[in-house]
């Protein structure tokens, strides 16, 4: 039995857009390659102080998606030719339907789950391994760890989260997964090589000896705006900045986000009305993304940071 789902509710604390939506640059969808699911809404068992959508146990702005809701968008995705599926939250494994949802998605294509890995006991890892082995498509476990020590990570993600996540990485590796470890860059550039070496060391100690590491830039919205700093006034995307820019580098040119409350342009703009596009996936695919928020500046600088790899990029010819 799945969780009892209350009526989906719209966001209750939508911040004001940082630019006039009518005047902001827009990006057309080039191809719907990535379909993202806000599968656990904004509900998370952790309260990370860098979370760009401020997820927590109490943040019910976006609620869990049911297996049927996800399935409806998966059906639409086949018609639209989607290439890969991503599941995020909140913490996806707080959704009691998660394993069934993954089974449905893995029947259609490759799947990535973004998880804090604190809710992955051995029985769940075993179930994931069964799902992965049964599918011809890859199941990527993307684990967020924000430091190479408990002290460094737990200052951001909460007490005990480092040990629980590292333990789960060990279980995932033993089950045959090669988790993608994502970490937000909270250090200076000159420290990067040392941090990466330390990750290799700490992950190797739990049996993960060929780690895949992905460093993310900070998104200075949500909780992160308080932890470190918000955006400077100049950090926004203008029409001039888009004039010579290959828009296909941006996630919103090749992705849409499905939530229990409708369709968004991308996973980052969840708290912004300008990110909301439509009720149906077909409608959302037909509408351009609006680069009205300062978080769009981070993507303009760094490209499609949410993807496992750069996606459908500029044609080299």
């Amino acid at each position: 039995m799945g969780i009892q789902l209350p009526q989906a509710t719209p966001p209750n604390s939508t911040p004001a857009p940082s630019a006039d939506v009518e005047e902001a640059p827009t990006v057309e969808l080039r191809a719907l390659d990535q379909l993202w699911f806000q599968v656990s809404g904004t509900v998370c068992n952790l309260r990370c102080n860098h979370c760009f959508i401020s997820c927590s146990p109490e943040n019910h702005s976006f609620w869990f998606m049911s297996r049927d809701e996800v399935r409806a968008s998966l059906d639409a995705s086949v018609r639209l030719g989607v290439k890969e599926y991503y599941f995020t939250g909140g913490e996806p494994f707080m959704n009691r339907d998660m394993l069934g949802i993954l089974e449905d998605a893995l029947a259609l294509g490759p799947v990535t789950v973004l998880t804090n890995a604190t809710l992955l006991p051995q029985r769940t890892v075993d179930a994931l391994a069964v799902l992965a082995a049964a599918s011809p498509y890859t199941l990527e476990m993307r684990v967020s760890i924000d430091g190479v020590t408990a002290e460094m990570n737990d200052a951001i993600r909460g007490d005990g989260s480092f040990d629980r996540a590292i333990g789960a990485v060990g279980r995932l590796a033993a089950a045959g997964f090669l988790p993608i470890i994502t970490t937000m860059q909270t250090w200076s550039e000159v420290e990067t090589d040392g941090i990466l070496a330390a990750f290799w060391d700490v992950l190797g100690k739990v049996g993960y000896d060929r780690p895949r590491l992905k460093i993310l830039p900070p998104l200075r919205i949500g909780a992160e705006a308080s932890r470190d700093r918000g955006y400077d006034e100049f950090e926004r995307v203008t029409h001039d900045m888009m004039a010579e820019y290959p828009a296909e580098l941006l996630l919103c040119s090749s992705a849409r986000l499905v939530t229990a409350s409708g369709m968004w342009a991308c996973p980052i703009l969840l708290d912004y009305e300008s990110g909301r596009l439509a009720h149906t996936l077909e409608e959302a695919a037909a509408r351009p993304a609006v680069l009205a928020e300062q978080a769009c500046y981070t993507c303009w600088v760094n490209g499609a940071i949410c993807s496992n790899m750069p996606g459908f990029a500029a044609d080299p010819a």
């Binding site: 086949v78 989607v82 290439k83 490759p110 890859t138």
Partner: peptide, 10 residues
């Protein structure tokens, strides 16, 4: 492992 059949069909 990363290419759905419906994507190839499209």
């Amino acid at each position: 492992s990363a290419t759905p059949t419906h994507f190839l069909d499209k």
